[in-house]
Structure formats: C-alpha cells, structure tokens
Design a protein around this nucleic acid. Sequence first.
DNA 1: ATACGGTCATTGCAACTGCAACGAATCTGA
DNA 2: TCAGATTCGTTGCAGTTGCAATGACCGTAT
Lengths: 143, 143
Amino acid sequence: MPFHLDTFLPYLLSVAAHRTSARFSALYAAEAGLTIPEWRVLAHLDHSGAASVRDIHNLVHLDKSVVSRAASRLELAGLVQKEGDPDDRRLIVLQLTEDGRALMQRLSRVADSFQAQILSELGADGPALARALRQLGPGQPGD
Amino acid sequence: MPFHLDTFLPYLLSVAAHRTSARFSALYAAEAGLTIPEWRVLAHLDHSGAASVRDIHNLVHLDKSVVSRAASRLELAGLVQKEGDPDDRRLIVLQLTEDGRALMQRLSRVADSFQAQILSELGADGPALARALRQLGPGQPGD
DNA sequence: ATACGGTCATTGCAACTGCAACGAATCTGA
DNA sequence: TCAGATTCGTTGCAGTTGCAATGACCGTAT
C-alpha cells in the first residue's frame, strides 16, 4: 500500500506554517520592511522589555547568528538599541527605541486582527490547534 | 499592552513544524541519507506512480528548482529514474526504481509509526489538528 | 593571582532556498 | 506555414540559514 503524504502531519504542518507565515509577513512587509526574524525579535522585545541575544535565541527558537544579524539590521533601522550590560560585559542588552515601540504598537494591532481572522477561518478547531501546536513545540522535552 | 508572541499562531505553527520535521528527519536521515525535499519527492512518487517535475512542484509545495535538484540527486543515488516523455519532450517522467520502491517500503513503515507516535502524544486534539492544518494549507485558495 | 573551563556575541563558511533568466519544445492563430 | 506566446526543466545568482570556530569575558578553584 503506497504512502499518503497528504495526511502526514509533518508535511501538513510544514505547508500550513509556510503559508500562514507568508500571509502574515505580507502584512508587515507592507507596514515596515521586516523579515520574519526581525519581526520575532521586535515582538519578543515588546513583550519582555529588554533581553540579550541569548534570551531571544532560547525563547524564540531562532539561531544565535540569526538573532545577532537581525538585531544589527534593526539597530541600523533605528528600531532597536544595543548596549553592553555593565554587570556582564559579554551580554548585549537589546531594547526597543521609541520608534520601535511605535512600530510595534501598530504591528501588534495588525497581528491581533490577523490572529482573529485565522481563528474565524478555523471555527471550532482553533483552540484544539493551539493546544496541539503548543504540545508539539519545544515545551517539556528538554529543548 | 505588549504583544504575546507565544500565543500567536504563525509563530506556534512555525516552531511546531520545524520541531516535528526535525524529529522525523532524524529517523530517515538514519535510515537513508535523505534531505526533506528528497523525502517528499520519493513519497509523492510512491503515492502517484509516475510524475513530472511540474506535477510534484504543484502538489507537494516545493519550488521547481528544488524538485529538479532533488530528483537529480535521487537519480544519482539510484532511487529514481528520469526519462523523457515521448508525447511531450519538454516533460521529464520521474519514477521510483526497484531500490527506490524498496526504500519507500521501509520508510513508509517508519513514517506510519512516527505518525502514530505523534497522534498518541496529541490525544483527543489530533483530528482537530489535522483538520485545521488542511484548512490553513493551500487547498481552496487558488494556490 | 592566575590558569582553566564555561558562556556570550560575532563572524566565516558551506549548503540550501526562492526567484529570475534561459534554451528547448509545444501550442495558438492568422 | 510560421511567428509569437506559453510551458517545461535546468541553471545562475543573491540572500538566508545552521553550524562551527573565534575572541572577549566571567566564575571558580587552586
């Protein structure tokens, strides 16, 4: 009996994730010229206030090098401020600038309405999807 | 109010997809030395018998160039046979070789048991996840 | 003090991706 | 018939990613 790729969860996840990210990134690429890693760094900083490259690497599932380069681009764009931590000079403290906070204020509204749009498309399966994704994502398993 | 990335569906999808693919690809990377696109091409050929590069590009959500290069590597590895279509000499007919079929017979068992493993982890949310992913993936919306 | 292992951010580098040509083959309509 | 538009697979190329150094810095135990 041949194998059915179109019911295989890793494949379905990959396609759904790619398509959903593309739909959303079209929105904030229009609003600002952001890439996905840049968006995630901004979003995490908006949520956590200040964070090091390592914090973001651990919590947002992005490689250290990706975070580092995204932060450099964001600093150049004036959205993020980088300064050395005086207590531990290995660390870089990343923070939103005034412009960055203003941008995130606009973008979080876009994100919220996108989320609402997706949930309305999903109907009753929305909550189960969120639960399942949290289960599959790197939560408990050591990662 | 700050934005919460950890309840945002595009982000959750991306993390879950990446992690699940990594878990699975560790299995077939051990069994054969396959990359993800190579696995998808093999799986689709196992399911559809024979297909052109374009067919796979359309149905498996992989860029033409990715399919083309994966097919070349698979041909070199003796898993796939490439021949020109006599009716339309622009087309390339891809087919599994005997070795390719044998490999897919082993891999589809690995895949099935992985799928079962995932579903058991998800419990009651599994079916809703599958429905939701099919809804989000490129089905109806022209794509 | 100071040597040493561990942690941090950055950088180099190879591999991969997505996109835009490109050449070959087919289709269309005059 | 035959010129132009289209479709096919491949290839070039720039940008990105993941991984492995690298160098700076810290903590600790001698």
